[in-house]
Design a protein around this nucleic acid. Sequence first.
DNA 1: TATTGACCTTTACGCAGCGTAAAGGTGTAG
DNA 2: CTACACCTTTACGCTGCGTAAAGGTCAATA
Lengths: 254, 254
Amino acid sequence: MEYTVQKLGMLAGVSTRTLRYYDEIGILKPARINSSGYRIYGQAEVDKLQQILFYKELGLHLDKIKDLVNSPSFNAAKALSEHREQLLDKRSQLDRLIANVEMTIASNEGRITMTDKEKFEGFKQKMVEDNEQKYGKEIRKKYGDNAINNSNQKVLNMTQEQHDEVTRLAEELHSVLAEAYKTGDPSSDLAQKAADLHKQWLTYYWSEYSKEAHAGLAQMYVDDKRFTAYYDKEQPGTAEFLRDAIHIFTGMKQ
Amino acid sequence: MEYTVQKLGMLAGVSTRTLRYYDEIGILKPARINSSGYRIYGQAEVDKLQQILFYKELGLHLDKIKDLVNSPSFNAAKALSEHREQLLDKRSQLDRLIANVEMTIASNEGRITMTDKEKFEGFKQKMVEDNEQKYGKEIRKKYGDNAINNSNQKVLNMTQEQHDEVTRLAEELHSVLAEAYKTGDPSSDLAQKAADLHKQWLTYYWSEYSKEAHAGLAQMYVDDKRFTAYYDKEQPGTAEFLRDAIHIFTGMKQ
DNA sequence: TATTGACCTTTACGCAGCGTAAAGGTGTAG
DNA sequence: CTACACCTTTACGCTGCGTAAAGGTCAATA
């Protein structure tokens, strides 16, 4: 049985353009070219295309597939298990995304009467909160805490009063931190008060508090540009200052 | 505080190219252009960029983000909950992908001594098996079966002998079906034997057998081009013939 | 036999979100 | 006055094709 592009395309459920493209990049060449320049495929090409489509369904990129189908000696097992790792990473990334989106929706729903200005302030605040969530989870994974979904549940179940309280805490932290920063001393009373406020704020998001995780998050405030940008917005160096204060507060120098 | 492209880029952790691109597509325009043509951003632009990056983290496309940040009246809640649906779909797609990849790995590991030819045959067979998995799950969802992971576990736990048996069954089905097809009668003994073999084969993959699901799968053999391609490879019309036989076998006409 | 209409060919632009030159002007420190 | 680090615009490249456009080929029909 021989096939032209369209025949093969119909058979396999792909477009003729796809087949031409596969020819072009050398992933599936026709068995021969007839006198009119037509691409003619045979049974072997049908089988090969099946494999290609199978790997594509698994989400592999065409260049990887090319290696797989063109050299049978290629280590398929290794390629597949690497690919599996990537997929798992992708999924946990997706899980975080979904949690963040849900949190944002919940937050918005709870604050319907906000003015536009407040709304945007809320978004900004929310961004940092979301990042807390995200990195908080990573920290907890690092420290072996597996109650991953608790924090999200906690946020989603937060009442309006609790939400107001956490917002108030964030504002107080903000102003105390700004004052403390002027002293230049992370071990000062004000700075330590800021660290304590940060802890209180944090406990609204984390189901379990640990000094290690708190100190780790503080470090991330410095390492991650988005955090740094948020905290340093008015006074450059504030993120670093907060980290130092928290490290002293928790007694962790990492 | 005013920023040039690089300053703002450093602050927010994005490249200068990105900022120029955002200017180009009108998602984030600088506050003003100075006498030398430099882009100058102010505090408002910093804030807006934060929002943009936040939405980007949520996986929204730039044109959606543009709507969100440029018109505060835009229905953010709706956009977000639609986006949430998309993410959930994406995740279940990913779950299926991961299951398929794991099955393929497991299958490969169990058949290390295969010759290259057998390997490729195995891949082809695997393709249909995987599709069985995939659509089998969809059918079961349709019929309210929530034991989704059982089938995958079943395949992963399959012993070598079971794997051989299922392969043998597939081959027998193949030849019986080819013979039955010649009779042209889906109610013939041979055709009904083929349907029964198909049922036996199927029970290796599904934790629960139901006539409805079996009949539904048979219909998919006709509707989905990849199935059709596989079954019709030698005799066009075989998929349809098998469907008819199974519909008679199960007593379901849908 | 001529024509029609369904096929086939190559060439090439477009898509998202930038990365990465290239070619040139600007600002400031030594 | 010269480096040198910054800024600008223009434009090609990446993936995996979709979608014309401009033109040959093949089988059936008038």
